[in-house]
Structure formats: C-alpha cells, structure tokens
Design a protein around this nucleic acid. Structure first.
Ligand code: ZN
Ligand code: ZN
Ligand code: ZN
Ligand code: ZN
Lengths: 134, 134
DNA sequence: ATTGCATTTGCAACTATTTGCATTATAATG
DNA sequence: CATTATAATGCAAATAGTTGCAAATGCAAT
C-alpha cells in the first residue's frame, strides 16, 4: 500500500488538530495545501487510513461522523445525550471487558475508539432537563 | 408524546421482521400500508422511536444504519470485518462492564445495542484472507 | 362541535457519503 | 529507460440522511 500524498497530509492535519474532525473539516483544511483535491478523494483516503488502523471513525451523535488520529494509548468516550458533553476514558477501563469477550467468543476485537451514549452526572439530577435543549 | 400512526406501523413492521432493517427497507414495507407516506416522515418516526428507547439504531459496517425493535432481553453484536458474519451476545456479557463504567464515571449508560468490530475465529487463521472479499 | 396548542407530516432543498468509470500517478519488471 | 500492473484521483451520478417551513392532524378543554 503506497502512502498517497493526500493520506500524508491528512495524517499531518489530524496530528496537529488532535481532535474529532468531520470529513468536511478535514477537507477544508486539506484544501489549503492541495486546493484542487476532490472531496471523494478525501473520503477514500480517510477510509484507507481507517482500514489500516491509523485513524478512528466514530458516530458521536452528530450528523456527520468524526475522524481522529490514533496515538499509542487508545482511548474511548462517554457521550452525554442531554448536554453533549464528551468524556474520555483510557483503554484500561475497557481492556478487561474486551479480553473476556475475546476469550469467550474466540473473536479478535478491532474496535479501537468505543463510543457509549448515556447521561452524565450533571444531567442525571431528578427529572432535570438542564444544561441545554433537547 | 403521542403515538403517531407511522410510529405504530413501524413498530408492527419491526416486530414482524425481527431483523436489522435499513430505513429504506422500513420505508418500502410501510409503503405497502401507507402508500403516500414520505421518506422523511419515516426517518423522523424512527428517530423518535430511537429517542424513546423502543428501537435501536446501529452502524453495522454497511453503508446504511439499521434499526431493530428492542425486546425485553437486550442483546449486542460482534461483527467480523472480513466475512461480515454477525454474532449475537447476550446482555449478561456486557452488564458488568457497563456497571463498572457507570460507577467509576458517574455516567448512566443508555447504549442498548452495542456493536463491536473484529475478526471472527474462522477468519483469524494465519494470514488467511478466506471466506470472502475484502 | 369549536378552539387552542403541540406534534406530525409533506415537500423541497440541503448536507453527507458512496460508487462507477475513465484518467493519472506510482511502483515493479525487464 | 520502456512496459506492465496496481493503486489513487477527479468527476458526476446515485444513495443516505437532515432540516426549515407551512399545512395537517390529534388531543384536550371549553
Ligand atoms: Zn477520541
Ligand atoms: Zn450531560
Ligand atoms: Zn441486534
Ligand atoms: Zn469472519
């Protein structure tokens, strides 16, 4: 697999940003360096990076999925459905569960950026519909 | 929240099918009973059913997300990225993990249909790229 | 039945993502 | 370097999913 120029620039972009970016955001940033690049090229390069395990893709409850460069220490997220707060948890909190599942089901887990939805501490109080809309 | 006619029919449809259906598939089936229904109406009714916890929505690695009626016993899935096989696991296998996370993070998990991707036993053998394409 | 209010629906426009196909770039071979 | 194979790109069309707004509908209180 050869490292296309677009893949390289995406990796550099994502490592600078260190955030969860939509494909549109990646596209806009990349255009500054490669003005002629096509959006479907970006989609396909992102797909290749995801397939090769260098980048994660996740639905965090927004209308567009987000991409993030995977660093050495894996992490995961808890997303509050009321206030949209995103909590980050380390892979240690997930490791044993994954290990058990793998043993019991003879299944090698590849998921590297788990997103769990729920209600954060702040939004749990009473029937409180605080913090924001929805 | 009033139970719209489309919501009712979606629930009946999903309980009959008892499968993971795309919104397009739901739409096609519903059209047989409500020929004039609009696709965005189906999208919005599905969204309401998901928000109210009656239906799950999941990206199982196909280009369109799938919906499933939630029954009493929750279940989850392991999806093989090579052969696309879908394994089903009971909520017992996930319960303790969710419980721990909830305690440690003061976060009430709502996710009710977890999808984990990986490689099934059959596809793990050697550098074997067996079973199907990809 | 009539009114008032909140929810649902249709419709059209819009955003997001995928795909087929022809072309171009890169790597591998000779 | 010329030839061949493979992977990446652009482009346009197709498929998915979302949203604003106005009209229709359901429900409850006159
Ligand atoms: Zn992350
Ligand atoms: Zn919250
Ligand atoms: Zn299921
Ligand atoms: Zn498999």
């Amino acid at each position: 697999m050869r490292a296309s120029s677009v893949e390289q620039i995406i990796i550099e972009t994502l490592s600078k940003e260190h955030a969860h970016l939509t494909s549109q955001q990646v596209f806009e940033i990349i255009r500054k360096r490669l003005p002629a690049v096509n959006q479907s090229t970006v989609y396909r390069a992102l797909t290749r990076l995801v397939d090769s395990g260098k980048v994660s893709v996740s639905d965090m409850g927004t209308k567009a999925v987000v991409y993030e460069l995977l660093t050495d220490g894996l992490h995961h997220h808890l997303v509050c459905q009321k206030c949209r707060q995103i909590m980050t948890i380390g892979h240690e909190e997930v490791e044993d569960f994954f290990g058990d599942l793998q043993l019991k089901n003879h299944f090698q887990i590849v998921t590297n950026h788990l997103i769990l939805f729920g209600i954060c501490e702040n939004c749990q109080v009473g029937t409180n519909t605080n913090t924001e809309e929805m």
